[in-house]
Amino acid sequence: MQVAERRFDDYEVGDERRTTGRTITEADIVLHAGQTGDLYPHHMDAEWAATQPFGRRIAHGTLVLSVAVGMTAGDINPRAMSYGYDRVRFVAPVFIGDTITSTAAITAVRPHPKQPERYGFVDELVTTTNQHGETVMVLTHVYLVER
């Protein structure tokens, strides 16, 4: 990881970056289920999942979110921190063996409403796709950034 100090005025709408791919494994799903307690058959029961519309087990949405956002965290910026995630949508299923990639694009920069002289918000649209180029998840990652 690199340290990349960027203050609020250093961010520009349209800046974009793309991650490398990450293949989702059965071990990822089992570990995530154990950590979260989400043992729903959609994720854990191959026989049951085979009878459902997708025909096989799917990764947890929260697993996909965690991996997709984690892949975008290549730089450490001591002047910014995650403020949260807006408009999270799981657009399509992610299956065991799928490789996901994320693209993160700055879509908005705005002053903090209560402390505009100290902070601003940066919105980054994260679009995650599978190996077929199909969008599987979208969200807006909101950063709180020092001026």
Rank of each mutant, 00 (worst) to 15 (best):
V30T: 12
V3L: 10
A92N: 13
Y83R: 10
V145S: 04
P113C: 04
T23N: 06
A59Y: 06
R7H: 08
L144T: 12
D38H: 13
A27E: 10
Y143R: 15
A105L: 06
I100F: 01
V109S: 04
H43I: 01
S102G: 11
A59P: 10
T99F: 08
L139E: 11
A46K: 12
D123S: 15
P93S: 12
V136M: 11
R57V: 10
H141V: 02
L139K: 04
D9H: 13
T51R: 12
L125I: 00
G61P: 06
Q131F: 09
Y85G: 10
A80D: 05
D38F: 10
L65T: 14
G37S: 01
M44F: 00
G14M: 06
F90P: 10
L139D: 09
R6V: 02
F95S: 06
T72A: 07
F95D: 06
R79L: 14
T107Q: 06
K114P: 02
R79W: 08
D15W: 13
T36K: 05
Y11G: 01
V142R: 12
R56N: 00
P113M: 06
T19L: 01
S66I: 06
R79F: 10
V136S: 13
T51D: 09
P116Q: 02
T36I: 00
I100P: 04
Q2M: 13
A104R: 01
E146D: 05
R17D: 14
E26N: 12
G34I: 03
S82Y: 02
S66D: 05
Q131V: 09
D45K: 05
P116I: 02
M81W: 13
V91G: 04
I76E: 11
T103G: 01
E124L: 06
A104Q: 06
T127P: 00
N77T: 07
I106K: 02
V122E: 04
P78C: 10
T135E: 15
G37N: 00
H132D: 14
E5H: 01
V126R: 03
E146R: 15
T107E: 10
R17M: 14
A4E: 07
N130T: 07
A92I: 02
D15G: 08
V3A: 03
G70E: 01
Q115F: 06
H141C: 03
R18N: 05
I58R: 09
Y40F: 10
F95A: 04
T23W: 02
Y143M: 15
F54E: 14
A92Q: 13
A4W: 05
G133C: 00
R57M: 00
A105G: 03
E117D: 15
D98K: 01
R110A: 09
I24H: 04
A104M: 05
F121H: 13
V67I: 14
V69E: 07
R56M: 02
P53E: 09
A92V: 09
M71S: 00
V138A: 07
W48A: 09
R118D: 12
A108P: 04
Y40H: 13
H42F: 13
P93N: 04
G74Y: 07
D28G: 07
I76A: 02
L63P: 10
R7M: 00
V122L: 02
G21N: 08
G34W: 04
S102Y: 03
M81L: 11
V91L: 01
V122P: 11
M1C: 00
Q35A: 13
V126A: 12
A50I: 02
L39F: 15
T19A: 12
R147A: 08
T36G: 01
G14Y: 14
G21A: 14
